[in-house]
Design a protein around this nucleic acid. Sequence first.
DNA 1: GCTTTTTTTGCATGCGTATGCAATTTCTGG
DNA 2: CCAGAAATTGCATACGCATGCAAAAAAAGC
Lengths: 370, 370
Amino acid sequence: MSVDGGGVPRPEGGPATTTRHAVTAEEVARRAGVSQSAVSRAFTPGASVAAKTREKVLAAARELGYRPNAMARTLITNRSRIIGVVMAYLDNLIYPDVLEKLAAGLQQRGYQMLLFTGFKDRHSDPVFEQIMQYRVDGLLLASTTLSSDLSDECAAAGVPVVMFNRMTEHPLCSSVTSDNRNGGRQIAEFLVAGGHRRLAYVAGVAISSTNRDREAGFREGLLRHGIGKIGHAEGNLELADTRAAARELFAADEPPDAVFAGSDHMALAVMEVARHEFGLRIPEDVSIVGYDDVGAAGWPSFSLTSFTLPVAPMVDAAVELMMEQIESSSILSHHRVVPGRLAVRGSARLPRRPVRDRDGTLIWAPGGTE
Amino acid sequence: MSVDGGGVPRPEGGPATTTRHAVTAEEVARRAGVSQSAVSRAFTPGASVAAKTREKVLAAARELGYRPNAMARTLITNRSRIIGVVMAYLDNLIYPDVLEKLAAGLQQRGYQMLLFTGFKDRHSDPVFEQIMQYRVDGLLLASTTLSSDLSDECAAAGVPVVMFNRMTEHPLCSSVTSDNRNGGRQIAEFLVAGGHRRLAYVAGVAISSTNRDREAGFREGLLRHGIGKIGHAEGNLELADTRAAARELFAADEPPDAVFAGSDHMALAVMEVARHEFGLRIPEDVSIVGYDDVGAAGWPSFSLTSFTLPVAPMVDAAVELMMEQIESSSILSHHRVVPGRLAVRGSARLPRRPVRDRDGTLIWAPGGTE
DNA sequence: GCTTTTTTTGCATGCGTATGCAATTTCTGG
DNA sequence: CCAGAAATTGCATACGCATGCAAAAAAAGC
């Protein structure tokens, strides 16, 4: 036994039933007339192999259809090159975009993405248990909140956690967010400059930092102009809830003449209700502003003025942060805040004069560069 | 050395820098005073372990924060319990939904999802190489096509392939689709019954089976009523292309009075152009029908008549098919076609009388059950 | 040509778990 | 209380690969 004389594979011949036997480095080694180590080295960038040997190995590998077994590699290197991504739900229109860009970014660095989603209502703990079993090198959390003890467990296991579009006070989690507070404030400035005095806010998930900051910024901006009391309703990022919230606002004794919704998803729903249930004209009767600047915001039917969530730079930052932590193998929490800008369209009344933030930066100017 | 007297972990004490040392079954075994095999068995449902032993083991595991290493398990069992999911892009509004439901379905059966996406333009081969290294138990392909040789490779490696919302003639791939042909035909019937005679089709990706079948059904239905020539433009499932296609159609000498777009995504874009660029009223001047019945189709602004893509049953079928093939470990291609129905709304003129398909089934009736 | 340095190679081992097998314990029935 | 059956347990091994180390080969220097 042993010599590979007859070991040629038969590409044709087999029926449609599988052998379920993957080619191993050992087999490639035999065929190439080298040791298994040589095969391993041929597939390891920067390893000590003669060019000629590598050629032989790669040729043999090609003939046999060999692919290194990532699982076995993980076992030794203690690096799976898998990032766990948790997105409880994908309703928000930005998430598909985030997912695409994230996958591309990770892929480029040789990482794969294990996705956990679709458990909107259920608890996330069992999911978390699964994640940990697969020895992910890092965890990216978007559209979900992780209870504090879970973060501890991650830290204990040495798994870096990056929160996306969410912040947490937990000392062991990093985060990437847009400048929610600033966004809220700029929207306040813009609406006040447009002559609005009766304002309302439609909240997303109340406990999320994102919602909290957007609202805080909005109120802060309004307060600068002496507006302390505003309408408030909860949309919870849900279609049905948001519609109810809109009805509540518009049916009030003193309905708002401008509404800021904490996300475009909700802003669009508010618009629908305003137009089709209350017959309101936008922006003549009511101005509506959103946050995120999703694709649909730019459609003529909506032409929604919205603060841009800078998805691409945010994803870049998240990937970068993740890589840093994986490589340093020390968990240091960094919080990155990416700036956005107000995309002014037609759903909110345009001010007559340029609008500036409190620090003087230009938010918008008539006939300006957009 | 050896006895575990002092081997208790210190939950407090360490700084924020990680140990990167995961607890192993061996350590749990020592702590519980049993063998490593016992630990393994305690975590294997149906294995031969005394209840008392299992308790001891689980207790020790809890104290140490032990989690079985899925990678090591994969190495032995030759089953990763990971399904590779390939979605080149997530633009189509149904995909996030598919992803959520798919994740939930797989999770429920103890499978995880390795997602490959975000390579719209690039070639998928390198991606495929990655997938295979992770020894996925199955491959689900949506919004992408796999070249024939890749399918062969999968078959050779014993990896079942299920195509979602796509078909292929390849003998080793299964597929789940909606009844595209039937959908196209029913839309034809409906539009003709509504009095339309100048029709047009906006195509998705020309070579995809989905597009092919929808168009074929549409033409077939029209032909039954003597309509052989229709307008045609390519939207390629892209926003920009679709807008261009719509302009082309509406600017023609004999513009259509009814347009069927091969997906809602495109139908909405056509609507936008019709209304805001050509000032057309819908459905008075032109009827527009889509396919997929995405969420936005139901918004009052669009009220898009659309053929329903039955996402939930399709995902169920896909998961089921996948599990079957994994368990039987034989690759037999099955093709499952899931029926849908026409969701009639306001974007297309309503016929005066009930509409029936050629086989007599009711498509729609005035004042009917929807 | 021979020694020294550098590069390349193979050997052996271990990563963390599952599992067949034989040894041991517990249970059952008389 | 004991023999036999059944349940439980531990031992040893294998899964596929990476890597430290020493041996071998090649290259360089004189």
